[in-house]
């Protein structure tokens, strides 16, 4: 167990170092923050034009959640992609250390950045589009935000595991992120979608979590939304288990065939 903790710590340290290199004041102020806020503003304005301030408020909550989920899906995928592109994947595979805690540690920085994004979007955009949203309502829903981002990370990890032997990892995880925006009830309610798309939405992370968040913000209790939260957790665990299986399989194949560097 202590070895797992050590590996997790070491992975987390590497993750933070990576992010520290990327996050210079120029990229944070000139790119990361504006990108997160303005993407949300763009979709909120479409909703405002389509359905007035009520739909804009709906889109504000949806896009706040999506900003973090999108980031965490991509970051989880990037953790795997980065090892591949930097040529360090063969060392990870060959090493006797368990890769699971190391990879979990590596993705911690992305998870935290996802949560920071939620905070940013809410702090900057609630005064403009939030109407009657109060800080207390949002704080009340905070635990569900945490659960939903974690659940979405599992999907990101699965995406990274699936795309491991290909060169299309970034395209795949970006597409997944946008598809979740479409099927997850981010800009308009899931019920407005055709039944098949609704079904797809409900088997993807975020949809149930987002429904729970909206309900809690509107005054529902955690007991009322426990079914939705439980669904979100189960979906996250299922995707996590799938990712574990696929990634293990990929690594085994790579060890057997020695083709991990062919992509």
């Amino acid at each position: 167990m202590s070895q797992w903790i050590q590996l997790f710590r070491s992975g987390a340290r590497t993750g933070w170092s990576n992010i520290a290199v990327e996050l210079t004041p120029a990229t944070v102020l000139g790119s990361r923050i504006p990108r997160t806020i303005l993407q949300a503003v763009f979709f909120i304005l479409i909703s405002y034009a389509a359905g007035g301030s009520e739909l804009a408020k709906f889109a504000l909550i949806g896009n706040t959640m999506h900003a973090a989920v999108f980031h965490s899906v991509i970051e989880m995928s990037v953790v795997i992609e980065l090892e591949k592109w930097l040529g360090t994947m063969p060392y990870l595979i060959a090493s006797p250390a368990n890769w699971f805690p190391a990879m979990m540690g590596r993705s911690l920085a992305g998870y935290v950045e996802g949560l920071v994004r939620i905070l940013l979007v809410l702090l900057i955009l609630v005064p403009f589009f939030g109407a009657d949203l109060t800080a207390l309502d949002l704080l009340h829903a905070a635990p569900i935000f945490f659960v939903t981002v974690a659940s979405a990370s599992a999907l990101g990890w699965l995406s990274g595991a699936i795309s491991l032997p290909t060169r299309w990892g970034m395209l795949i995880c970006n597409t997944i992120g946008y598809v979740m925006m479409l099927t997850g009830g981010v800009n308009f309610p899931v019920t407005a979608l055709p039944p098949v798309i609704q079904w797809i939405g409900h088997i993807l992370p975020m949809t149930n979590g987002l429904l729970a968040i909206r309900a809690v913000i509107d005054g529902a209790s955690y007991a009322d939304t426990s079914g939705l939260i439980l669904n979100e957790i189960i979906i996250g665990l299922v995707y996590g288990a799938l990712a574990w299986r696929v990634f293990t399989h990929r690594l085994n194949v790579a060890r057997q065939t020695g083709n991990i560097e062919q992509f």
Partner: peptide, 15 residues
Amino acid sequence: IFTLLSVGTYLYGGK
């Protein structure tokens, strides 16, 4: 995706 999202939002908003 952007077409589905934007047209979907306008249709939902009755526009």
